[in-house]
Design a protein around this nucleic acid. Structure first.
Lengths: 123, 123
DNA sequence: CCGTATCCTACGGGATACTG
DNA sequence: CAGTATCCCGTAGGATACGG
């Protein structure tokens, strides 16, 4: 076990950071359906600021997870799409989703029990 | 697709938050080996503050991922261990690790390319 | 249309001191 | 030993305005 979660250079840590990031995952999931334009993403992902959208897209592009294609037309048109690597990451995300759906009831149940117990003890 | 990453109530989002959290994952991985005491965890996980350790443990316990066993002895002894649910989460984490190790070279390569390109353009 | 630049705030989380 | 209580700071990220 040389897995070290607070070592920034550890592959596991970097993947974990990426997957823990709200916007990254959401963008990957959207692009898994089909390529999207910048504004499409901005509109679909309500609540994201242009700053975060650009920042996240750049990060994903830098990691080779998505491609950025600029079409030399007026008005400008930029398409974002998943790479093969991005698609393989999307497979992982899908598995996470499956786990979450499968076990969410257990988690909610555990929470209810935990919280109820807490109330009694507080008295 | 009813997956909504900025909806706190979405199971996927909650799992993603948990997995993106440095300390949670590290603790789960440690407990996957064997149960640990509070101080053991504190010593092994260098850099974690008591505040974060307790907070993370409580969160994991609340979600039913770990158990907290207090032994009525002096000095106090508290053991933390994975539940079945926690073990199934650990399986996921192991898969993430596998993906990370498998694809990290691709990512690093992509970054090197991206950064090199950037330097040229900057001129 | 597709971004960048700037400002600003909330809060996650570290350090530390103390207690049952 | 196994935590809690308190203070405090850095920074992620939202809002906004503007540029190519």
């Amino acid at each position: 076990m040389d897995f070290n979660a607070y070592d920034r250079n550890c592959p596991s840590r970097q993947l974990l950071d990426r997957i823990g990031d709200t916007w990254s995952v959401l963008i990957v999931v959207l692009l898994a359906q089909r390529p999207h334009r910048y504004t499409e993403l901005a509109n679909t992902i309500q609540g994201i600021s242009p700053k975060m959208l650009t920042q996240t897209l750049r990060g994903l592009e830098r990691d080779g997870l998505i491609t950025r294609t600029v079409h030399a037309v007026v008005p400008p048109r930029v398409d974002y799409a998943l790479t093969d690597l991005g698609r393989s990451l999307n497979v992982l995300v899908a598995e996470l989703e499956k786990w979450a759906e499968l076990h969410i009831t257990d988690v909610l149940e555990a929470r209810a029990t935990y919280d109820a117990r807490g109330e009694k003890e507080v008295v």
